[in-house]
């Protein structure tokens, strides 16, 4: 399986993602934002970081960069595109997934482990995962998911909510919402479920001696589903 990780000026989780993808069997290529063509890929990842210094709005400048035209074409033709953290912010700015990510409700940068409940397993990303709840890491200042009432209805009707913040037993109550996101939303799909944007970082949970193994569950499952 071939993957591509896009590096924007200011990306800082691109190499972690490279390590994670390779660990679970992907042949990964790093792609510079100023390139025009995407290498042949089964999965394209927009990594975390602070692309373009978060100027204007997080992800807004990166969403207009040269490589994104190819990424948008790839996504619109059904290609698998995953945006993590700043990558999620870039995805919402392209309009590939609905909504926006606002400043965290209590104006603090949040860096901690969280639990997320898998809300929809009928897709290539989460199909065949036995767990209902995964422990991932979040590190962001703008992860407060917001959309209009009409958009929310559409997202819910189309089962586009991927994961919600919860406690370790899977309760998705407001007290387990770290950043003020509507309905505790931590990640969403596009309508076809080939595009996933999420704030948590699975690539930070692939080594038991450093963090945890729930990211390993995610990547192992993902590559098996893609085969």
């Amino acid at each position: 399986m071939k993957s591509s990780v896009i590096t924007f000026p200011g990306s800082n989780c691109d190499r972690d993602m490279d390590v994670a993808l390779k660990k679970f069997g992907f042949k990964n290529k790093m792609v510079w934002h100023n390139d025009a063509e995407l290498p042949k890929s089964d999965l394209v990842v927009l990594p975390g970081g602070f692309s373009y210094g978060d100027y204007l709005r997080c992800g807004s400048m990166a969403s207009k960069s040269k490589i994104m035209k190819s990424v948008i074409n790839f996504a619109n033709s059904g290609g698998m595109v995953m945006g993590i953290c700043n990558g999620f912010q870039i995805l919402v700015e392209t309009g590939l997934v609905p909504g926006v990510l606002l400043r965290n409700k209590y104006l603090e940068f949040i860096c901690k482990n969280v639990f997320v409940k898998i809300n929809n397993k009928k897709n290539t990303y989460f199909k065949n995962i036995d767990n209902e709840v995964l422990e991932f890491h979040i590190a962001h200042n703008e992860g407060n998911y917001f959309c209009t009432k009409d958009q929310l209805k559409e997202i819910e009707d189309n089962e586009q909510i991927a994961i919600n913040y919860c406690d370790k037993t899977g309760k998705t109550e407001e007290q387990f919402n770290p950043n003020g996101s509507i309905k505790n939303i931590a990640g969403i799909f596009n309508k076809k479920k080939n595009i996933l944007g999420m704030m948590p970082h699975p690539e930070r949970m692939i080594d038991s001696s450093l963090s945890g193994e729930d990211g390993s569950i995610f990547f192992n499952n993902l590559i098996n589903n893609l085969k």
Partner: peptide, 8 residues
């Protein structure tokens, strides 16, 4: 196209 995000 860029300066404003019309969702918000």
């Amino acid at each position: 196209k860029l300066l404003a995000n019309l969702v918000i």
